[in-house]
Nucleic acid binder design. Structure first.
Length: 670
RNA sequence: GCCGGUGUAGCUCAGUUGGUUAGAGCAUGCGGCUCAUAUCCGCAGGGUCCGGGGUUCAAGUCCCUGCACCGGCACCA
């Protein structure tokens, strides 16, 4: 049995998964399930990346040990993936002993190969900022933010990886294996990057406790991204189980976001070359998800969609289909509730779902559900073969959207076949033989379509197969070769049941469905499956829900990570009323405005990013709210001593705070 | 200002290395069917492929240029 090892990127645990991360897992899951269907022995690995300083900080803020925080986040992630029916075989965490063993092994190998050397990072260090400063950041040899503090010349011991040594081998590899990076556009970017030269990279941090110690310098920990990449090999036994490693490595496919392509096609392969390990066969950089055209990001709450919510609304399978079929794999994709609901109605309610219903209904009505094999209908059988081949070719080429479309063409072909052969007319005319044949073939067209769609909609397809009298214990038992063609022998008992995907009516689609419905678990006995819908009836929009036009709100903070401030902490912020004396645009900037403001006792210069929303002249005389005790910052060469308060949603123009009655400049706000 | 992306039917988008008459779904109009969740099937209308210039026997596709929108950074303290 051929093997297939694929991975997704492991996820940072500093926030809960959103639809963008879910998209990657769904796409990878579709590929994994397709490979199983195609007869491969599949290993599908996902996991969490836990050794970042951010995680360390977040844990501290939540009053937790880092590992306890990570444990909690693991549950969050597992819950999300479970609600989306992600069929990973293994879930690796970078804090696990097996991963530490893998990292240690790689570090040891690179060290032995002479590809790690000790270097020092030297530079001006500003104690006030707790950071190294570049020469260009210093003014008269001093940190502009802390002009009274003498910067210190510091050295930090670091270990460097000789990445530069692998420039030519990487270029050779890319030329020898054009399929290594996909899609194509990313490959060109990397070629340009390599042609421009590579610099060695630092792989350690001194003086940190949260991380994996370097075997040859226990005082340093491995830098987080270097650590993270190794998970792909440590998950299959690097450093712990040579036999397992030999079985699965190299990976057939890394599915990652396009933003981290260069880590995966430059640094990671260079590490493997240095360690004497084979390179992964393919790296696929998928696109980003947007919400209603806006970039989905943590700092923009309106764009964050909780994948479990989205799945709960119409079902995990409809969501999986939408993301797989409507987004060209490799391109950015947009999610909107309206489009999701539209595609749900068209593809699932009207076409596939209705086909299931009409086939089972006719079988029951004309034959008490009992169908006997009949000769294949030529056109439909040919369509099944053609579309199944196109489907497999597309899947092999990772054109997931094209593959879905092929499967749906078979759904269309089956609907056409039914219309053309009019079984209801045959029934009326008493042409039993012809009727038997049409019913059998229609059910076969549908069955093959369900087999093809099973990687995308596993639970639903299992239900469809059960209703068609061809139950499987697990869709993983299906095989393309055997099951994705029209069969011409046997007898079956079909069962009609509730609509799989009830059509959403216009007024229901206008409002988000706030009721969280969980998918009815599919029972193990096919009989029950046939009797129970895999997806509950769409919840009717209640009058109350109909008034709500906003989508479900952004992800709530993780339980237990209470980030609220005490009153003392809040009082540290010195908010003041200020009156604008002068305002002028900062030359060559897009949105910066330089203000001088009256604070009662003093006059301050503040630079604010409000130039896109306000004309500077209109600000003069206006009373605004500012933060008065911020550390100064330099913006476009101008020192800003404070911050103007404004309502500012990401992507929207800021709106200044206004006072209904004018307070005196300098008045404290609290 | 720099870097990147996008611009194709009313809407949402496909369009491989240049190659017949530029496609799909939705929406619209007409017709058919009644097994089915008012579903399905057929037909039709609808396009300056953002503008301009160029290369070529041939350009939605390649090159130059302009415009518009989006994203990132410089600058949101």
């Amino acid at each position: 049995m051929p093997r297939y090892y694929l991975t997704t990127a492991i996820d940072y645990v500093n926030s809960r998964p959103h639809l963008g991360t879910a998209y990657e897992k769904i796409a990878a899951d579709v590929i994994a399930r397709y490979r199983r269907l195609a007869g491969f022995d599949v290993r599908f690995v996902m996991g969490n990346d836990e050794h970042s300083q951010n995680v360390f900080r977040q844990a501290a803020e939540a009053g937790l040990e880092p590992i306890a925080y990570c444990d909690r986040m693991e549950q969050e992630f597992r819950k999300a993936w479970s609600s989306l029916d992600i069929s990973f075989d293994d879930f690796i965490r970078t804090t696990q002993p097996r991963h530490k063993a893998g990292v240690t092994e790689i570090a040891r190998r690179l060290h032995a190969a002479g590809d790690i050397y000790q270097g020092t990072y030297e530079g001006w260090y500003c104690v006030g900022c707790e950071a190294f400063k570049q020469d260009k950041d210093l003014v008269d040899g001093r940190c502009p933010l802390h002009p009274r503090t003498e910067p210190q010349w510091l050295k930090e011991n670091n270990h460097f990886f000789r990445l530069s040594k692998y420039r030519q081998p990487l270029l050779d590899h890319l030329h020898a294996h054009p399929e290594f990076i996909q899609p194509e556009s990313r490959r060109n970017e990397i070629l340009r990057l390599l042609e421009g030269g590579l610099e060695d990279v630092s792989i350690s941090r001194a003086g940190q406790s949260w991380g994996i110690p370097l075997p040859f310098d226990p005082g340093s920990v491995v830098y987080v991204w270097f650590d993270a990449l190794i998970n792909y090999a440590s998950a299959v036994g690097l450093g712990t189980d040579d036999e397992l490693l030999a079985t699965w490595w190299p990976a057939d496919l890394h599915v990652i976001g396009k933003d981290i392509t260069r880590f995966h096609v430059v640094i990671w392969p260079a590490m493997l070359l240095a360690a004497g390990l084979p390179l992964p066969r393919r790296v696929f950089g998928h696109g980003f998800m947007t919400k209603d055209g806006q970039r989905m990001s943590k700092s923009n709450p309106g764009t964050i969609i909780d994948p479990s919510d989205a799945a709960a609304r119409l079902g995990a399978d409809p969501l999986r289909l939408f993301l797989t079929k409507e987004i060209v794999f490799g391109n950015d994709g947009d999610f909107s509730w309206g489009r999701f609901e539209e595609k749900y109605n068209v593809d699932l309610a009207n076409n596939l779902g209705n086909l299931v219903n009409r086939v089972t209904a006719m079988a029951e009505r004309y034959r008490q559900g009992r169908l006997v094999a009949a000769p294949a209908a030529e056109t439909l059988a040919a369509a099944a073969t053609t579309h199944a081949h196109a489907y497999a070719a597309a899947m092999d080429a990772l054109q997931l959207d094209v593959a879905c479309q092929s499967a749906f063409r078979l759904v269309d072909a089956t609907n056409e076949y039914i219309a053309a052969s009019a079984p209801w007319a045959l029934a009326k005319a008493g042409q039993d033989h012809a009727l038997d044949r049409v019913l059998w073939n229609a059910s076969e067209g549908l069955r093959v379509a369900a087999v093809l769609l099973s990687p995308v909609m596993p639970a639903s397809c299992r239900t469809i197969l059960a209703r068609l009298g061809t139950p499987v214990a697990d869709v993983g038992d299906l095989r393309l070769e055997r099951d994705a063609q029209v069969h011409v022998s046997g007898t079956r008992q079909l069962t009609r049941a509730d609509a799989l995907w009830p059509r959403l009516e216009a007024d229901a689609t206008a409002a988000p469905i706030s009721t969280k419905t969980k998918e009815t678990p599919v029972s193990d006995t096919p009989k029950d499956v046939a009797a129970t819908p895999a997806v509950p009836a769409a919840p009717a929009a209640s009058p109350a829900a109909a008034q709500v036009t906003a989508p479900p709100s952004a992800a709530a903070p993780v339980e237990g990570t209470d980030t609220r401030l005490s009153i003392d902490e809040f009082m540290k912020v010195d908010l003041r009323v200020a009156q604008v004396l002068t305002a002028e645009r900062v030359p060559k900037s897009k949105k910066l405005v330089k203000l001088s403001v009256d604070l009662g006792s003093e006059t301050r210069t503040i630079v604010a990013g409000i130039g896109e929303a306000y004309e500077p002249e209109a600000l003069v005389g206006r009373r605004i709210a500012i933060v008065a005790n911020l550390k100064p910052a330099k913006l476009m060469g101008i020192e800003s001593n404070g911050m103007v308060l404004a309502a500012s949603a990401e992507g929207n123009r800021p709106i200044l705070i206004d006072f209904a009655e004018p307070p005196a400049p300098g008045t404290r706000i609290r």
